[in-house]
Amino acid sequence: MNQYIVTGYDYTDEGAFDRRMAVRQHHLDGAKHLKENGNYVFGGAILNDEGKMIGSVMILQFETEEGLEAWKQGEIYITQKIWETVDIKPYRVAEV
């Protein structure tokens, strides 16, 4: 499978954190679904100095580019404007 590192940084407007929290459970449910299908490797929140969530990092894997694109089209943090920027790069988890 092709692996990817996904880095999403949240919008910084006044309502950004509230938007994140309003859809966070949907995002986590989506990650659980990805894990059940073998697409989720690991992930977590990026925190600022005060410990507040300001973004996310996920390691995902898909058989095809179409699978990655389908995930992007349905990811609630993208569709609901939680992540202002999303950077996706090919990645390989080291096997040690």
Score class of each variant (00 low, 15 high):
4 Y>A: 04
7 T>Y: 04
8 G>T: 00
10 D>M: 05
10 D>F: 02
10 D>K: 00
12 T>S: 11
14 E>L: 12
17 F>P: 01
17 F>C: 04
18 D>S: 06
19 R>S: 08
20 R>A: 06
21 M>I: 13
23 V>D: 00
25 Q>K: 15
26 H>K: 10
27 H>I: 12
29 D>V: 09
32 K>C: 02
32 K>A: 07
35 K>S: 09
40 Y>V: 07
46 I>W: 07
46 I>D: 07
48 N>Y: 02
48 N>P: 03
49 D>K: 15
50 E>K: 01
53 M>D: 02
53 M>K: 02
54 I>R: 03
56 S>C: 07
56 S>V: 05
56 S>I: 03
57 V>T: 05
58 M>A: 11
64 T>S: 14
64 T>M: 11
65 E>M: 13
65 E>Q: 12
66 E>D: 15
66 E>V: 11
66 E>A: 15
67 G>A: 01
67 G>C: 05
68 L>Y: 08
69 E>T: 11
70 A>H: 12
75 E>R: 00
75 E>N: 01
76 I>M: 06
77 Y>T: 03
80 Q>R: 15
80 Q>M: 12
80 Q>Y: 12
81 K>C: 00
82 I>L: 15
83 W>L: 06
86 V>N: 02
89 K>C: 07
89 K>L: 06
93 V>I: 10
93 V>S: 14
